[in-house]
Amino acid sequence: MSEPEPKWTVAVPAVSARDVSVRRGEIQALRHVSFEVPPGRLTGLLGPSGSGKSTLIRAIAGVQAAVEGRLTVLGFEPGRAGLRRWLGYMAQSSSVYEDLTVLENLRYFAEIRGAQLGGLLERVGLREQTHQLVRRLSGGQRARVSLAIALLGSPRLLLLDEPTVGLDPLLRRELWRLFGELAGEGATLLISSHVMEEARHCEDLLLLRDGRLLAQLTPDELVAQTSTTDMDEAFVRLIERA
């Protein structure tokens, strides 16, 4: 176990992609994507469904096969053992044990991460459901169990794939506030969404379409470049220009 330990510093980009492509069977899911995710910021990964968001997040999490090009997390190859304790990953499917209670799910993942539960259930608004079987929860509640698991152990890099989909607007707003707080505490967040409006909550944006990176910019730059505050319209204008 003498391999170099990944260090978390502001000097190295949290994620760096150079000419990254992924082929999934017949589909070219990502085409020559290059970008850097700065550490300690909230980056939104936006694009319509099928644009390659999940493939990109899975590649960064180190669970995507057939990744071409150079993709590094803190300068290291994704998925290696030393990196995994820094990482919190929430997939699009809820990826929780339906036949366990909320607390049993969290306890198990806390044990394998060597983490404490702290006030996580309160933070995602699931205190009342602590002892309920996940099978009996609504879709939105399951998504929050999944989110709580991703947040265990205060990971430095959070990869959240559509964490707010299907949630009621009030809860969505609270979660975006929580994501902002986490970035304020020093975590790097990469959050995907197909709802363009959510771009407003992010500090940086990666816009994907058809497996290609359309643009990397801030929400203000997006508004300035497209001369509209309607995020859907801004996306359309970017596509037309490209």
Binding site: G79, A81, Y89, A91, S95, V96, Y97, I112
Partner: peptide
């Protein structure tokens, strides 16, 4: 199928 295996493989669990 549920994705828990994929999630486990992103944690320190070998």
């Amino acid at each position: 199928i549920s994705g828990t295996l994929e999630r486990l493989l992103t944690t320190p669990l070998g």
